[in-house]
Every structure is written in structure tokens, then in C-alpha cells.
Amino acid sequence: MIRFNQVYKRYPGGYEALKNLSFEIAEGEMVFLTGHSGAGKSTLLKLIAAIERPTTGSVLVKGQNIKSLKSAALPYLRRNLGLVFQDHKLLFDRSAFDNVMLPLQICGFDHRESAKRVRAALDKVGLLKREKANPIALSGGEQQRLCIARAIVNRPTILLADEPTGNLDSEYSNEIMSIFHSFHQVGVTLLIATHDESALQHFPGRALTLKHGELL
């Protein structure tokens, strides 16, 4: 599903964020990406979502090489990915419902079908009753769950999460990890970057550990 082949990522100025990464994630796998902050976890996720391109080496996502991907093909790659951000990236000018609606609007879904899907996604993360609320009125944990609802409403095959529990206490963290685990059970490929080691003990899944941009 995702394959890295001798990937280097160098930023202008000479800083090497990732060094010689090679690994593979199979379909339906749940993988934790761990390491201290600054180890290159976010950069690695950005390479998969084609937000950044590798300096050398190849990144294959569903058989497509990110490096040679034309910018016109990029949106269609991203529609297969669900992205969960540490800072949520929610839009505060619209309701929770409309935030989750956005990916379906982008794909041009039928309006009535979309509304059903949005409610299903909100239900899955336990926010159905807050659909009319503005995201700004939600707690940190609820905002994170809303972000997850937006990431899954399009039924992506791959879900990438960057520190999804970064700002949350352990109770909320467990809740969110349980949600991720339920996606794993229905066959979604998950890659979760986290520095929270406890999640690794509670949930099954392989761990990839980064240190100074290298895989341990």
C-alpha cells in the first residue's frame, strides 16, 4: 500500500529531515510511527500525502510514485487518503456538519447521499448531537474527533494521523485510539504518528521508530 525506497528528504540549507528510509506498509495494516519530536515523523507523513516531495528515492502510494506525480493528479491521490492533523485544521466559519461535508462537496457527491454519510461519520466519532455547533465551541478532544470524522467521511483506504492525541489527556487519547482501532478492524490502512508510547501497549500494531531521520 505504501512503500518507501531509500528515501532522503533534504531541505534547502542542507538540513536532512529523513535519511535512507526503506519500509513497506501492507494493506489493512495499523502502524505506529514513533520517535521524539523533530525525528521526522511529520515529514514522513507529508511525503505520503504529497505535501512534500522526496529529494531522492521513491515513495509509492497505491502504486503511484509521489515524486513523478503531476500536480493535476494530486487531488485524486489525496481523495484516497484521510488526513488527521494535530492542529485539526477545521474551518471556523461553518458548522461541524459543514466541515465534515467539505470532502464530499469536493468530490461532487450527491447532496442527499452526502448528508447521510456526514451523519454516519459524526455518529462514529460521537458528535452527532453537536452537528450544528461551530467547531470553535467544541473541546480539544471533540475538535480532534471532528477532524477524524472529516478524514473518514470519504471512506479513504489509507488514514494518516499526525499526533492525533498530542494535546489530549489520556482518557481522550484512549477514546481516539479506540476509534482508530475500529477503522483498522474494517480494513483501513492506518499510519499514526505519535510520541505516546502507551498506545503501543494497548493496541495491536507494528511500530516504526524514527531517530534523527533514520529508522531504528
Binding site: I51, P75, L77, R78, R79, L91
Partner: peptide, 16 residues
């Protein structure tokens, strides 16, 4: 700007 960034991340085409 924010909305455009998010839309691009979610897979919006330039046309959209």
C-alpha cells in the same frame, strides 16, 4: 487562505 489550504489537503482540484 486557510480554507483553500484545507481544501487542497482534502483533494480539491484547482478548478473546484
Amino acid at each position: 487562505r486557510e480554507e483553500i489550504e484545507v481544501a487542497k489537503l482534502i483533494g480539491a482540484t484547482n478548478g473546484f
